[in-house]
Amino acid sequence: MQRRGDQLSQKESCSPRRGEDSMGPSTKKVDPRVKRTRHLLQQAFWELMHEKGFSAISIQDIAERATLNRATFYSHFEDKYQLLDSIVQEQFHQMVTKDLDLPPKWEERTLRILIGAVLEFFREFDTCPPSASLNPLVEQAVQRELYHLFVTWLNQAPTSEPARSVSKELLALTTSWAIFGAAGQWSRETQAMSAEHMTDALLAVVTEGVASFTPGFVQE
């Protein structure tokens, strides 16, 4: 991917961030010991990613770097793919929710923040350890999190009858893919428009469709 704008340092942008383990807005409390152990495993994994790459990392490598044993690893994650998923989903979730009121309202401001977070993710991902085989795994994790966020927010939206009969799941699927696909193409263009202009353009396209299917959607 082509880098653009002011980039965070590799350590800042790629290191796992502490936060809630959540697929969507949640007030569920997690045992501090569990959070600490998960963070140790995530941090160890990401350090090894920089040193030797995803394919060369073993579960034993991760456990030893985290000063834990293999049994502890498997009590938290099935394999290194699920560990990668957890890092990507948690970081992306934090990017989205850090500027939102909780619970978030189904309105244009929410969509603007969401689109901005997707673009920010692609920009920060430029600084992470390059791996052509890893990119699809990371992108799939983000797209799934994006879809689940949409489903969560749509389920919290006003329940007035839409002008057209479309399920919330289908609306979440098509909208999340529209944003994710456009953001991915934007990240691959060497002369792409700024993130701010891209956010405005995507927002204009998405809000027209969303507003016609969910009458409770609040436009700015």
Rank of each mutant, 00 (worst) to 15 (best):
W46Y: 14
R33V: 14
R38Y: 04
Q94I: 15
K29V: 15
D21N: 03
Q42N: 06
C14S: 03
E64W: 14
S55D: 10
D85M: 05
V88L: 04
L41F: 04
F92Q: 03
F45V: 07
A56M: 05
S75K: 10
R38E: 08
I87L: 00
L40K: 13
T27N: 08
F54D: 02
E90H: 03
F73Q: 02
D61A: 13
S86H: 10
G19S: 06
G19C: 04
P16I: 04
P104W: 01
V88Y: 00
D85R: 03
L48V: 13
H93R: 09
K80G: 09
S15Y: 05
N69P: 06
P32Q: 06
V34N: 10
Q60G: 11
P32A: 13
L83Q: 02
Q89V: 07
L40P: 04
M23N: 04
L40T: 10
D85V: 10
D21K: 04
T97Q: 11
Y74L: 03
F73K: 00
F77V: 03
G19Y: 01
E12V: 14
Q42P: 05
R65Q: 06
R17A: 06
H39Y: 06
M95H: 08
E64Q: 12
A66F: 00
D31S: 11
H50Q: 15
R36P: 07
K29D: 13
D79V: 15
E12S: 12
E47V: 15
E90D: 07
S15R: 14
Q43F: 07
S22I: 07
Y74G: 07
D79E: 15
H76W: 04
I59G: 05
L48W: 02
S55T: 09
A63H: 09
G53F: 11
I57S: 01
P103Y: 04
Q60K: 15
S22D: 04
E20F: 03
L84W: 01
R33P: 11
F92M: 06
D21Q: 06
S26P: 02
R18P: 06
V34A: 12
H93P: 05
S9N: 06
K28V: 13
K52A: 12
E51S: 14
D61L: 14
E12C: 08
N69M: 13
A63F: 15
C14Q: 02
D61N: 15
M95F: 12
S9L: 06
R65A: 10
S75D: 09
K35R: 15
H50F: 08
P104H: 00
K11C: 07
F73M: 02
H39C: 08
I87F: 00
K11V: 11
V34Y: 11
S58D: 06
A56G: 03
V96K: 07
I57F: 00
S58R: 05
P25A: 02
L68R: 08
F92D: 01
F77L: 02
D99M: 15
A66R: 01
S9H: 01
D85W: 01
H50S: 12
T37K: 06
S75G: 13
R17T: 07
G53A: 12
R70D: 08
E12N: 08
R33L: 13
Q89G: 04
D21L: 05
T27V: 14
